[in-house]
Design a protein around this nucleic acid. Sequence first.
DNA 1: ATGTGTATGTTATAACATAACAAGGGGCGA
DNA 2: TCGCCCCTTGTTATGTTATAACATACACAT
Lengths: 159, 159
Amino acid sequence: MPQETLGFASHDHSTCVSSAMAAAEAACKERAVQLTPVRRRVLEILLESHAAMGAYDVLARLDAEGLGSKPPVAYRALAFLVAQGFVHRVERLNAFIACTHPGAAHDPAFMICRSCGKVAEAQANAAMNQTAALSGFQVEQTVFEAEGLCPDCQTKDAA
Amino acid sequence: MPQETLGFASHDHSTCVSSAMAAAEAACKERAVQLTPVRRRVLEILLESHAAMGAYDVLARLDAEGLGSKPPVAYRALAFLVAQGFVHRVERLNAFIACTHPGAAHDPAFMICRSCGKVAEAQANAAMNQTAALSGFQVEQTVFEAEGLCPDCQTKDAA
DNA sequence: ATGTGTATGTTATAACATAACAAGGGGCGA
DNA sequence: TCGCCCCTTGTTATGTTATAACATACACAT
């Protein structure tokens, strides 16, 4: 069920886990919140898999490592990481993915390949917020997700 | 659980149900697909409630009317209506809402009030498709949803 | 030592969704 | 008319995702 994502492009994955972890640690210290063992491990799992994972996929990993076996353990850690912006929820997949843009606040957008399952994160632009503002709606959070075919799968389909 | 939506604006609801039903019937005839009693009734329920409803909310209504009591009955009818574009799925809510733009193909966008639960449909612009195109991703379906406060609830919060 | 706040452990259940197979019913050619 | 195909519905069972509620633990401050 985990789904790879390399941004649809070749990717140096060797250092991004450790740098993202370092960024998360720094952010937690800055905000005076605790990156506890379970939370830290969940973030590592998501970063290492570099894919969208369901809460129960994450939980299975935690269970295998003796860090917890009940759904609330995984959901609580994920909720924390989402609240801190280290992880995003992909609504379309009912799944979670580590943020690829360390640090900065942003409205993520996702491109989900229906063929290979890879998920790429992009920066959403402010277009929807403009639309919403016209009707007086005050936007707090946005979900922008597109499903389709990634470049690789387009090629395969053509072949 | 059903959540009202009047587009965040006062709204003449008296004729929109019947006109939407007529549009759906015409479209089905055109496409040579069947608007069976269950499908018709599900669409009516969603139009009448004018709200985002969970599949089990719809099912409860069907059951009360003797049209079916098992989840697949509701899910199949909803899948048909979504495929025909008469109903949209709101991913954020795991819920369904009747389309307010009869007929024309479109990428819907939703504004979801976290306070009162109302959901308004708007037209998504092509911004995300442009972003996606830059990376070679071929978009087939989009999810654009914003959560926040509708004009009414902003006023109440301020009060 | 006691309270307070944060985090975790655990039980139980709620809420959402689909696979798989059986059965009905209409249209149509043999 | 019979048999066949296709679409739709009925039903059983189960799979998947998510949270409420309460108990426990630990760290730190009073």
